[in-house]
Design a protein around this nucleic acid. Structure first.
Lengths: 342, 342
DNA sequence: CGGTTCAATGTTAGCGCTAACATCCATTGT
DNA sequence: ACAATGGATGTTAGCGCTAACATTGAACCG
């Protein structure tokens, strides 16, 4: 059966160009270009003729050529640390929705939390002359920071707040950590373990831990940390619960770095018949949907992920439209969602 | 505080071009191009000199120009129906990992299950002369199908199996529907309701339902369908459970179109104190991680999502490398995961 | 020692489009 | 009636790079 020949012909079947359309419509190439880019500058009758010609020859504009000639493209480079984390896919959705509505396409890169890869991606992407760059976090390798500062287009750093290269949309993770720790203190928990996963890479989780520590220290309490070295998934959360129960039997609550871990732990507790929050309270971060469907409902902090994407996109679009620049970071805030798990 | 001027200068600070590098290295432009693209065709000493020059002037290749000149780009257009569904983000991850390792970038589009939008996206993307196109599903609008067939690059249609335009990687949804229905029959369930969400759009779910129907019909049983008109999320699953219990009180099992719905229903049953599977059995589709962490574990069919992405990418790369064409669709299969929920 | 070969490098001519300027011609005001 | 105006369209010259062909010169041969 296996035919070795390619199933499709590989003739470089030249797509029709703007010149063919022009000939067909009896106008010059630039008029076709105008119909495509600034239709209001072409007389209605001419425009219609050109549009008909486009239809007839089946013309699809070559954006590479267009972008090269005009030195501006219609895509947005987006760099995230991970795609397996639903958090980032929700941000991407927000970006997508806003950008696509305005005719921009998303060029997606994934660093796997590796700053070296980040630099490489930035470099590659800048070669595509994107209209703008959306990048996760404020910390970059030195080389990458230089590259970014040198580039002249809009850059948004998202997820966290601070001193940005250009635009900044995010939330204050330190404050979020404080908020949850404060909530746990209010509920009367004194022995609280913070559990993260691969925190060496995820420094936003480290920031939240710092906030957590501040609050506990202020109350004269210790803030033990358990850093799991697996990925932050359900399974890891379950194992973390086992580990905390074994090594910190006196613990009254666990503050997880994210909802995946927390949910994994909570479901594991359900399985083992461990009462939450009576035996041990559980809190997470992100406010994922699943947290509201487990029993007891998970206490968490909702991060407005899609909103981050939307606001970031809006900030970029405003800049591209030449509107007055946004000044300073945009804080999208967060919301404490107190469930029954604490 | 608010300064109205843009925070960054907008000088078109011309990036250095290949010509500058050439001057710096004392060679011609094409030699620089060769160092970049076919380094083995340049003498070592020259290469080193050019590499040093690239470093000195801080050259970043302009891929738009390169792609235009060579009529081939290094990106892959990927079109999925949704980003909110974790299924597709996992596929994208598989694609990403494989393509990025080979220096290809992903241009991402989202149709929201709208064939019109799909056509529009295809048209836009083809204008970028991508190296290949990855598109979800086998059904496209007529115009879109024409466009695709006309295009000369590799196209992979993913997720389902059948008569494809070019390459095809997926699984047989009809068979999957039969498989799960068969499993439910084996466990002795006779009154089984199939629950989907927005099935008018999600025809892969419809295919599974068809398979489901076949099996039940063969046993002389009815196959009632409940099509929820909300998105397929946890909440919808919970509501669907309520509805089934109210309108089909005799139902012994529910076959959900996906794990989100099924998990939502299962957790809702937990909340209400409804015994699963004693009072009602629950089955899903996709084999998401969450299903293995709820109690009872969810019976589902694991679709190898990341694998679909990887295999699709491999097929494309093989084609781009000019290797013998894969013949016929590639079936990635599926696995029945029997949990305690049935 | 002239001729052949071949690896390394250079020259030329676009890729398809758009910016910038040029031209044309119908309208307007005086 | 004629200059001034301005909207519609055209001409020219690249954008930065690479394909294709051209050239160079060192190594090798009979």
């Amino acid at each position: 059966m296996a035919d070795t020949s390619s199933r499709r012909p590989r003739r470089r079947a030249k797509q029709p160009t703007i010149a063919e359309v022009a000939r067909e419509a009896g106008v010059s190439a630039i008029t076709v270009s105008r119909v495509l880019n600034t239709p209001e500058s072409v007389r209605e009758t001419t425009r219609r003729r050109v549009e008909a010609a486009i239809e007839t020859v089946g013309y699809v504009p070559n954006r590479l050529a267009g972008s090269l000639a005009s030195a501006q493209s219609r895509f947005i480079a987006v760099i995230v640390p991970s795609l397996s984390n639903i958090v980032f896919t929700e941000v991407i959705q927000g970006l997508q929705a806003t950008f696509e509505a305005r005719g921009y396409q998303i060029l997606l890169g994934n660093t796997d939390y590796d700053l070296q890869r980040e630099d490489q991606l930035v470099s590659t992407f800048l070669g595509w002359s994107p209209a703008a760059l959306v990048i996760t976090g404020l910390r970059h390798s030195e080389a990458c920071g230089r590259r970014l500062r040198q580039w002249e287009g809009p850059i948004v750093e998202i997820m966290e707040l601070g001193t940005a290269i250009d635009l900044n949309v995010g939330l204050d993770h330190l404050k979020a950590g404080r908020c949850m720790a404060g909530h746990l203190r209010e509920r009367g928990y004194r022995r609280v373990v913070y559990v993260g996963a691969q925190m060496a890479r995820d420094y936003r989780a480290r920031l939240r831990y710092e906030g957590h520590c501040e609050v506990l220290a202020a109350a004269g309490l210790e803030a033990p940390l358990l850093d799991m070295d697996q990925l932050g998934q359900f399974e890891t959360g379950a194992r973390a619960l086992d580990q905390v129960l074994a090594t910190h039997p006196e613990a009254e609550a666990i503050h997880f770095a994210n909802d995946d871990l927390a949910t994994g732990a909570l479901l594991h507790a359900n399985r083992l018949g461990i009462a939450v929050p009576q035996r041990i309270a559980i809190a997470g971060f992100n406010g994922l949907a699943i947290g509201q469907h487990v029993t007891p409902r998970l206490t968490s902090i909702a991060s407005p992920r899609e909103r981050i994407g939307r606001r970031a996109a809006q900030a970029v679009l405003a800049r591209l439209d030449g509107e007055a620049a946004v000044d300073g970071p945009l804080d999208v805030g967060f919301t404490l969602m107190a469930g029954e798990s604490t």
